[in-house]
Nucleic acid binder design. Structure first.
Lengths: 149, 149
DNA sequence: ATAGCTGAGTCTGTTTTTCGAACGCAAGCG
DNA sequence: CGCTTGCGTTCGAAAAACAGACTCAGCTAT
């Protein structure tokens, strides 16, 4: 990676943020979660330069977030799909979406809706306590030195 | 903003991702959530160049994520604090942390722990259905054209 | 009173990234 | 055989990030 110093190698948020906080990466992931898989489609829908797209896709494959899978359309080509690690980013994307729709809503309403397949309900990201189940804000949480057992 | 094309102005994820996906912005926010508030402290703990730090802070103030508050230490200076909009990013940060600690764990363990102040339990970000309360993954969710009522 | 310190920036010249647009290439198609 | 398609690579130009010196105003120790 170019800017080695970007991430405090000890901090989890920092390391993730350094990967996802590169220009285009979050946008790229949004597209993947919406179903885009092919180079050409990323390039045209996001209007990203081809060289940077190549680079970002390679980084994400490298990090194990995407994998390059062969498909056949006339001849064999490759497309990009989420790995399990990639799919695990779903809460991040949903949290981002919730925040955006509440705090920076687009003038003409959202460009798509999300619903629970089974019951049709709305989808929401939240932070909760695994013990008592209460929903938490930053103020309910204490930061401590790590407990090294 | 320099690269106007970065964000599809209709898509909520896209708009949020364009703001948070700028280099340093996520890292900066991590610091803020950990309690950093002053220019000098951001600069030394993150090792970011002063000019870019100035720019990013201004952007975040501009977007209403941070606010610039006077404080007195010998003479009047300013520090940066989260607004309500900024605090609302907590689920994003927690989702990021959860993902990072599961999928890109630092070799020597996390650099801090988080616990629910009241009961001491662990903190976790999740996606759920507001109707039935079920925890959801990408596969449980359907993307549809927006319902314009 | 004066020289030095501090915190929050600004300025400048250099290095990295990103950009747009053209080019490469290998199959399949008409 | 030349055209199209999909996935890249290459290249010079433009934008962003970089390190580090400089500014500025008021406080503080001499």
């Amino acid at each position: 990676m170019a800017h080695a110093k970007l991430a405090d190698p000890q901090c989890t948020i920092s390391r993730s943020a350094a990967l996802l906080g590169e220009r285009w990466t979050l946008l790229l992931l949004r597209q993947v979660f919406l179903g885009t898989r092919r180079f050409e489609d990323f390039q045209t829908t996001m209007d990203i330069s081809r060289s940077v797209l190549t680079e970002r896709l390679a980084e994400l494959v490298d990090e194990g977030v995407l994998r390059r899978v062969a498909y056949k359309d006339a001849r064999t080509r490759y497309e990009y799909r989420l790995t399990e690690k990639g799919r695990a980013l779903y809460p991040v994307m949903m949290a981002l979406r919730d925040w955006g729709s509440q705090w920076m809503p687009p003038e003409d309403g959202p460009s798509f809706d999300l619903h629970h397949r089974d019951c049709g309900g709305d989808v929401r990201a939240k932070v909760e306590c695994t013990d008592c189940g209460q929903e938490l804000t930053a103020r309910d949480v204490r930061v401590t030195a790590p407990n090294r057992d």
